[in-house]
């Protein structure tokens, strides 16, 4: 490989890597926040839970199910008006972040709900008996007690989002996926294809490693952090 070609590749792949990173970061961030809130609502509104509400549970449950059963490419098309409203345009990276986020929210909501359901109901009952409010139960029992499972689930979500990010090209977005398709597949540049895919694999590997570590050490991590916060 000539140094010329190396420079060319770098010019192509480096910005694409940054674009992918940015898109994955923002859509994961928003999807996790909104999905967690929905997951909490789903959990609390279940019959027999802390704030049972059949109607709300049914509506959110139905929306989540519809969102999850929709193929990503179709979802992108259906939500175009919404994307335009949020991102200002239906094409480009920002538009794709919106689509990615919307696609991931239902997934996050369900896995969060499942993580919360793993928390021992006796512990919730104990907190309730001690006079904890619903807000306190969510922030001090539900979330901390399911943190290991939440982090494993978030890891899976982010990895899925990395996979989906390869389809940015469909709305004129950029990133490693479009580069791999446009240069590697359409223009037969095997090296471009190879490096784009390699970086994607490294991404996924990294996310998994960090996720597993965080999941196993979350309790110690939060302790260290809270001690550190108290100190300063």
């Amino acid at each position: 490989m000539t140094s010329n070609r190396a420079a060319e590749l770098k010019a192509l792949i480096l910005p694409a890597t940054i674009d992918t990173l940015t898109m994955v970061f923002y859509s994961s961030f928003f999807a996790i926040i909104i999905g967690t809130v929905l997951g909490i609502v789903l959990y609390l509104s279940k019959p027999g839970s802390l704030r049972p509400n059949r109607f709300l549970n049914f509506i959110i449950g139905a929306i989540v199910n519809i969102g999850r059963s929709m193929p990503f490419i179709i979802l992108i098309i259906i939500i175009i008006p919404f994307t335009k409203l949020i991102a200002g345009s239906s094409i480009g990276n920002n538009a794709f972040i919106v689509s990615l986020t919307i696609a991931a929210i239902p997934f996050v909501a369900r896995i969060m709900e499942a993580s919360f359901a793993e928390v021992d109901s006796g512990v919730i009952e104990a907190a309730k008996a001690m006079g904890a409010s619903v807000f306190q139960i969510v922030t001090r029992v539900l979330l901390p007690e399911s943190s290991q499972s939440i982090i494993s689930n978030i890891t899976i979500t982010v990895i899925n989002i990395v996979g989906y990010s390869a389809m940015a090209g469909t709305v004129g977005g950029t990133g490693l996926g479009p580069v791999a398709i446009r240069y590697g597949y359409v223009k037969f540049q095997a090296d471009t294809l190879f490096f784009s895919v390699l970086i994607l694999i490294i991404f996924v590997q990294l996310i998994q490693t960090i996720g597993s570590y965080a999941s196993n050490n979350i309790v110690n991590l939060t302790h260290t952090i809270s001690k550190w916060v108290k100190k300063y």
Binding site: A126, A129, V141, E145
Partner: peptide, 21 residues
């Protein structure tokens, strides 16, 4: 009620401790 519960302590069969604390 939440305030009234301060007056009652509960001990459970399965302890119901917070595992991450």
């Amino acid at each position: 009620l939440r305030t009234a519960r301060k007056n009652i302590g509960m001990v459970f069969q399965h302890f119901n401790l917070l595992m991450n604390r």
